[in-house]
């Protein structure tokens, strides 16, 4: 991949991420027998949010959130430039921590509860991501994405990694059943609740970046077989949307239990599976 192409991919990530998000919404509406919004709805939302009053609750709150958005964007750039998988995971963690701090910096009880829950969900999914990174290392012998994408396809030994990543996707994207950190009906969106206007648009666009972050993890499992990788992404996209549509939100402690038991468990199984495959 040429540098210019990578740069363009990274730079326009919020734009085509928005289109993915629009498609996601239409798909979910179709699953509920609705017509749903137009695919470009995220951009209409953006235009509307830009025209609103720029209201700031307090300066640190907004600044931490801008840090969150920028560092997340940087993580997406790192992905497209083929950076180190571990750096990417920790970069994403850093971005999330910025977001959590931003949630704690206001007096709103919903924002603080959202931060609490987000912290717990990070505790739940971060080990799984790291275990899966180790699995990828065991198979390809490297953490560099550019090298992984050049390696021959070895998906057979990564089946359990893929399954375990399927638990991480809804948690990071805050989709049902693992959306306790957002919990629209309980804590009114958690950390997102106190943002308005242009600043909410950044939080909104960060969702698209998070989408790119988790689905790129799934994409690299197929290494040099890009068509199979796309298939994996589309498959998991569908699977996550289907499960989102047919489950209720579980509580944060059940979330922790479920992720440690199934997600982390599958990660451990994956390590053994890879060792078995190597023999």
């Amino acid at each position: 991949m040429s540098i210019v192409f990578s740069f363009m991919l990274g730079f326009f990530a919020p734009i085509y991420g928005g289109i993915f998000y629009g498609i996601d919404r239409v798909l979910k509406a179709k699953m509920q027998r609705r017509k749903g919004p137009p695919v470009l709805q995220p951009f209409y939302d953006m235009l509307k949010l830009f025209s609103k009053t720029k209201f700031i609750v307090n300066a640190p709150h907004t600044i931490w959130m801008i840090f969150y958005f920028l560092s997340l964007w940087a993580v997406v750039f790192m992905i497209f430039f083929g950076g180190n998988l571990l750096y990417i995971i920790f970069g994403h963690l850093l971005a999330t921590v910025f977001f959590i701090i931003s949630g704690y910096s206001v007096n709103s009880i919903f924002s603080q509860l959202g931060s609490n829950r987000k912290l717990l969900s990070v505790v739940a999914y971060e080990p799984i991501l790291i275990v899966n990174a180790i699995c990828i290392y065991l198979v390809f012998g490297t953490f560099e994405i550019s090298e992984i994408l050049a390696a021959p396809n070895n998906f057979n030994s990564l089946v359990f990694t893929f399954l375990s990543l399927l638990f991480v996707v809804p948690t990071v994207l805050k989709l049902s059943p693992f959306d306790a950190s957002k919990a629209h009906q309980e804590i009114v969106g958690g950390i997102e609740v106190e943002f308005g206007g242009v600043f909410y648009e950044l939080v909104y666009a960060a969702k698209f970046l998070e989408m790119i972050f988790v689905y790129s993890f799934i994409f690299i499992l197929a290494s040099n077989d890009y068509i199979f990788g796309t298939f994996l992404v589309v498959f998991s996209f569908f699977a996550v949307a289907l499960v989102d549509n047919s489950t209720a939100r579980i509580k944060i402690d059940s979330l922790l239990k479920a992720l440690y038991m199934y997600g982390f468990g599958l990660g451990i199984v994956s390590i053994f599976w890879i060792l078995l495959c190597c023999i």
Binding site: K30, M31, Q32, K35, N245, S246
Partner: peptide, 21 residues
Amino acid sequence: MIKSIIESFSNLFAKSETINY
């Protein structure tokens, strides 16, 4: 849960119930 998943999937091919008023 399986029932709901199957229904959500089959709904993809069903006619929508809402009207473009």
